[in-house]
Design a protein around this nucleic acid. Structure first.
Length: 571
RNA sequence: GAGUCCGUAGCUUAAUUGGAUAGAGCAACUCCCUUCUAAGGAGUAGGUUGCGCGUUCGAAUCGCGCCGGACUCACCA
């Protein structure tokens, strides 16, 4: 990467001048304003503190000693003491040719020697609806998985689903009463609807009716113990949920390498916790087995409750054991989970580290993404205001079809990508105040805008009726020659940033950086499209502009892929 | 009570992790389709980045103190 080259130059110059600086890497960033060039460093500003000299003088001195390079057009010193670098046309056109020939060089961002990274996401509970919060989660998880893959990691997608617990007992309590009705259900939709209603009613009964509460607690125990009286109903309804989930997964372009279930953790969780008790990592307290976090500045949490059942914490240890052995050595396991579980993860990660530092230390990571709330407040099954994932996608699809008369297949892709994009364009650490009108936009910074821009590029190519060969035949030198507009150069400079944006997105686990970049690129391209003729332009220049359009299309397509979305050829 | 996170235009938000004139999109108002797809483009208006003090060449970003909100802190998942 050219960035690395410039960094090396700067380092060498600093060395020559006897600046044995403490910073091992020299900061080099692309400025947000194109008038400051393609790369910029603040090194002189930082050095001025140490050397107690004017930053401008230091910058000028550095510049004097920089070597010539064909890829760098010029460098200059600006106001407070920045050094800005401008890439040459030759370099930018080489990059352009690479992109249109599908040679996009993604940087390497690896998390360990085995480069095996697990992304654990989605996490719906059976017997409950898959709602827009899960949709945000799955959008982030899938995008992250794709980003990490493209920067050379071997990614494993997993999903830990809750299929035991009080919420299920509440649901089954209600379902037991309508066993006959259940038999008559045919479609999956009907079944899911019944489950949802049963859960809500069970929840109400649990709160208001004492005998119901007792009954539910009993059912909960029966589920844990695999009591044959409840097992068939549990298995059947559980399977309904799983079928329903797997339909959603494929609808939103996700596949998991392994589904984990809470129910498979119970037995092993108890074993592990008792071993840890013997080792002194866990201790007994008030009939429960707990981890005393005080020593480590952490919370104290219960792993086995007083009735002998493992809590979520206990089960997490069994899960970790499976996750870190099922696929060989794991270098990083990223848990995509909301932030209220921070205390929980801090504690379980600590316990795991105490079990085996080699396996777990610095390898577990809680990627906290924020909630999707409704503008009117929180979603809750009690209020009956849960927005179900399929409902949302269907609703968006309907709107797209009404407004643009798109055919079904295209509307489906547009709807799915609109919904996913609307979650991904925001930073993961911001709560989303969801409102269907505002949140799922079909214009402005939205998936349809990007797809529309992509379709434009494809349509240009088709209309040009020109084989790629003609464009490929043009030499870099010819391309260089026919760049006549600053706006062309601007697009080339932007296109060249793509791999670095991916790098940043990978390092920071931030898909929104890609969304922002794509939007910026699409805006610049659309402006260009409006201002200048492309296929109406005469031959040599026309080829250059077509090449820019093709490259823009490729970058958008690749970028959207990394955001977990497909593209369409027409709209 | 202790801790974690958040507060940017009317609304939804971005800002390369301390950089250069705080960018967008909705909504409002003006324009641009006999011209490569108007799901597009150009423009106007909208900001004391919750408030105050500090750190420094430089703060939305870091520190401290307020104000407001969310979450967590022992047997739910």
């Amino acid at each position: 990467m050219i960035k690395k080259v410039i960094q090396k130059y700067l380092q060498e110059v600093c060395k020559k001048n006897g600046i044995n600086d403490n910073f091992t890497t020299i900061e080099l960033e692309y400025p947000n304003n194109p008038k400051f060039g393609d790369y910029s460093t603040n090194i002189a500003l930082q050095l001025s503190k140490i050397q107690k000299k004017s930053p401008l003088d230091i910058a000028k001195k550095i510049i004097k000693n920089l070597p010539q390079d064909k890829n760098i057009e010029k460098f200059e010193v600006v106001k407070p003491g920045f050094i800005n670098f401008w890439l040459s046309k030759k370099f930018l056109t080489t990059e352009l040719k690479n992109i249109i020939n599908d040679r996009i060089f993604y940087p390497l961002v690896s998390f360990g020697k085995n480069k095996k990274v697990m992304v654990e996401f989605a996490h719906p509970n059976t017997h409950k609806l898959f709602h827009i919060g899960h949709l945000r989660n799955i959008s982030i998880g899938e995008s992250l998985a794709r980003i990490l893959e493209v920067v050379s990691n071997n990614v494993v997608r997993t999903n830990y689903q809750g299929d035991v617990g009080l919420h299920i007992a509440k649901c089954l309590y209600q379902l037991q009463k309508i066993k006959e009705k259940i038999k008559s259900l045919k479609t999956l939709e009907e079944k899911i609807e019944i489950i949802g209603k049963a859960y809500t009613q069970g929840q109400k009964a649990y709160e208001s009716d004492k005998s119901a509460k007792e009954e539910i607690l009993k059912i909960n125990k029966m589920i844990y113990e695999g009591d044959p009286l409840i097992l068939p109903l549990w298995q059947e309804t559980r399977q309904w949920s799983l079928d329903y989930f797997s339909k959603i997964y494929s609808r939103v372009n996700t596949q998991f390498d392994r589904l984990y279930f809470e129910s498979e953790m119970t037995k092993r969780a108890i074993e592990i916790c008792h071993q840890l008790l013997k080792k002194g990592i866990l201790e007994k307290s008030q009939g429960a087995i707990i981890f005393n976090g005080k020593k480590y500045g952490l919370d104290t949490r219960v792993f086995i409750n007083a009735s002998g059942f493992p809590t979520y914490e206990g089960k997490e240890l069994a899960l970790a054991e499976k996750e870190f052995t099922d696929f060989g050595e794991i270098d990083k396991c990223i848990h995509v989970v909301t932030p209220e579980q921070t205390s929980f993860f801090k504690v379980t990660f600590k316990v795991e580290e105490l079990i085996s530092p080699k396996t777990y230390k610095d390898k577990q990571y809680h990627l906290a993404y924020e909630w999707v709330e409704l503008k009117t407040g929180k979603m809750s099954s009690r209020e009956g205001n849960i927005i179900e994932a399929n409902w949302l996608i269907d609703e968006v699809k309907k709107r797209i079809q009404e407004r643009f008369k798109s055919e079904d297949k295209i509307a489906e892709i547009l709807a799915v990508s609109s919904v996913k994009y609307s979650f991904l364009k925001n930073s993961i650490k911001n709560k989303i105040a969801f409102d269907i009108e505002e949140s799922i936009s079909l214009e402005g910074n939205s998936a349809p805008y990007l797809l529309y821009t992509f379709v434009r590029t494809q349509s240009l190519l088709k209309k040009a009726k020109q084989s790629m060969e003609k464009i490929n035949d043009m030499t870099i030198k010819e391309f260089e020659e026919f760049i006549i507009l600053q706006d062309e150069l601007l697009l080339l400079r932007l296109l060249h940033q793509f791999p670095q944006v991916i790098e940043k997105a990978a390092i920071n686990f931030a898909p929104n950086l890609i969304a922002n970049y794509l939007y910026n690129l699409a805006q610049k391209f659309n402006l260009f499209y409006q201002k200048y003729p492309i296929i109406k332009e005469k031959e040599p220049i026309r080829n250059l502009r077509l090449a820019i359009a093709i490259a823009t299309g490729k970058i958008i397509k690749n970028g959207l892929y990394l955001l977990g979305s497909k593209t369409v050829e027409k709209m």
